[in-house]
Design a protein around this nucleic acid. Sequence first.
DNA 1: ACCTGAACACCGTTCAAGT
DNA 2: ACCTGAACACCGTTCAAGT
Lengths: 193, 193
Amino acid sequence: MTEPSPARRGYHHGNLKDALLDAARDLVATQGPAGFTLAEASRRAGVSASAPYRHFKDRDALLAALAERGFALFAQDLEQAFDGGKPDAATAFGRVGDAYLAFARREPGLYGAMFAICRPDGAKVPEAGRSFQVLVDAARQAAGGIAVSDDRILAIWALAHGAATLAAAGHLTDAQAHAVLRGALAPQPPRDA
Amino acid sequence: MTEPSPARRGYHHGNLKDALLDAARDLVATQGPAGFTLAEASRRAGVSASAPYRHFKDRDALLAALAERGFALFAQDLEQAFDGGKPDAATAFGRVGDAYLAFARREPGLYGAMFAICRPDGAKVPEAGRSFQVLVDAARQAAGGIAVSDDRILAIWALAHGAATLAAAGHLTDAQAHAVLRGALAPQPPRDA
DNA sequence: ACCTGAACACCGTTCAAGT
DNA sequence: ACCTGAACACCGTTCAAGT
């Protein structure tokens, strides 16, 4: 997987944009977003270091495109975990929480890239909205008829994100991250500790 | 603040380690952890690019030292906000939450550097424990006599961390981050949505 | 013990030139 | 339209040499 892929059809690559994104995902997975290098991605795609500039404005643009791709995969994962709310919405919501943590654990570099974008000034990541929407829908269904405030759903997102990133940084074990999230996903927290 | 400081006492700098950390904090504040450069920090300290290696193993070691410093400042901030629990522990706990978000907002680069360390394999950041301990103590006092589980406190940390980082990435407004945290800091969440 | 200067491998980015 | 090759400024790191 490290040698420059000879999957070139002559002078033109034919599919360079995707090849670069694939390489980027690989690099980010093994080295983290900081370890990703435009030069190495080019090498893996079998093109020169300047070739990417035909497809991306610069390094950050490629990373942003990767983040968008990551969010699409993420939304897909969460949707699949919810599985239409079967067998009941509360159980399904629990699965969404597990899937959230599992994604961040399986693809820490990609997850990091996804949330490293969106600087104060910056480029929005519209796909992020879709992932969040899955959370919203799952939470509302899990609540049955009871109204769920936006702030409550944002709190769930913040909790999941916080648990995932603290776990990634080694401040929480996976078990703790899951326990933390389960505590919040219970529809009505029982009043014992 | 950009010109190489002439605060050199001859050939030896005398205080290079701190000067580098100061420069790093500045750079990280304006450009983010990724924008930090050993070369630029050296330039600001008025030394050659190889001088830092007398004080830090490499770039990452300097960043780790900066993170440790960040955690020390952070713990201090939180402790001061708690202020011994005056006038009552619940109010003081609320202030700790605000201070948490305020720190991450005021020093996003530093906060980022603090939690970017601690890789799977990696170097622990012992100062992180002290910051967490402030949260633990504040939460326990705020609960009065009632026992507070470790998971509940970890959940508060995860929520604060998640809200802070989502806000930094532009996914939450500051007002939303505060609302989210206030909801969780209430000692016994009332059962209305 | 602390710092400089030259050196090396490397990266991001640009641009004229090739297909 | 897409890619190469040479070029430039830059960075991290090492090491012999200076103070």
